[in-house]
Design a protein around this nucleic acid. Sequence first.
DNA 1: TGCATTGCTTTGCATTACAAAATACTTAAC
DNA 2: GTTAAGTATTTTGTAATGCAAAGCAATGCA
Lengths: 175, 175
Amino acid sequence: MEKSQDALVLLRQIIRATDLHDKHLSRLTGLTMPQLMVMQTLRINGPLTIGMLAKEMNLAQATVTSILDRLERKELVRRERSHTDKRKVLACPTEAGLELLKSAPATLQDTFIREFEDMHDWEQSMIVASLERVSHILGAHHIDAAPMLDIGALDRSTDSGVPDYLRDEQSPLKN
Amino acid sequence: MEKSQDALVLLRQIIRATDLHDKHLSRLTGLTMPQLMVMQTLRINGPLTIGMLAKEMNLAQATVTSILDRLERKELVRRERSHTDKRKVLACPTEAGLELLKSAPATLQDTFIREFEDMHDWEQSMIVASLERVSHILGAHHIDAAPMLDIGALDRSTDSGVPDYLRDEQSPLKN
DNA sequence: TGCATTGCTTTGCATTACAAAATACTTAAC
DNA sequence: GTTAAGTATTTTGTAATGCAAAGCAATGCA
């Protein structure tokens, strides 16, 4: 009963570390965190429609639209209408946008990977198994996350046994 | 080299799960996430000065002030001037505020603890050790986090070997 | 007393966030 | 082919974050 507290504290530390890292990167790039989040998501997934982007980041479409407005004004992202379906609009990172991300200092996952690869095989396995367990407990198991630490979010969930707030957001109470 | 990717994905899933949970809780309580964050921080730490609160949550004092304004309007928090130093203002959760938090559904950490305690001792140890390792890698090791998952943030850091963005936020580039 | 410091609030501004309405396009039905 | 229904995005309107800079009050020290 001591250890569960320890584990919770450690989890908090981990989450907080990534949060602080994000804030740091945010200041460094001159982008706000949601803006950075869009850029990272695009970097990983390539061009996405606004709707996809919104779903990936768990935001309303309208929110993403206005974030993209600002990114476009900074010429980090370009909007491109789909040819096959002219309702769709693809958000594409520009050269400058990708450059900005590339020029960012060693990211947290770089650090992580470097240290991780230095470990013994048994330790790597232990960590993966543990994370697997924790992830499963938190109901995160089914989430289709990209291998990216600093930011972003995915959503695809199809099977059962999932806390319903992990499925769809909608609730009565509003501020 | 496969495993490090696995680990990163799992970490992302874990972080995302807590984020989604926070959003869920936010809708459920009718509070915004920063507001919830303040309440949780106060629940854990008891009454705090505005400055302390700001430091705990890594926000500017001005930001916390305005969040508290809203929480006070909702009668979830009460401001109380310190007797010993009348410059200081303590933010105290009200009865209603504590009640609101208590009435919230089983939190993520409850779920976690329940599942965790069911594990074999060796597995518990393995997980703690793994989290310890990960936390250390991410430079989170030194962070004095409260045993609280959903939200909140602490900051105390004194020793060395720490990425400097984990120490103090200040940078030239500004949007 | 004089004055720098500390702690908080106010002010002004940019950004995020979302629901609801409006717009533009596509597809299915007839 | 025209209409109706549905889909994808933007617009609009409102509230909340988030911060820097300025302002104000209390403290403490020289």
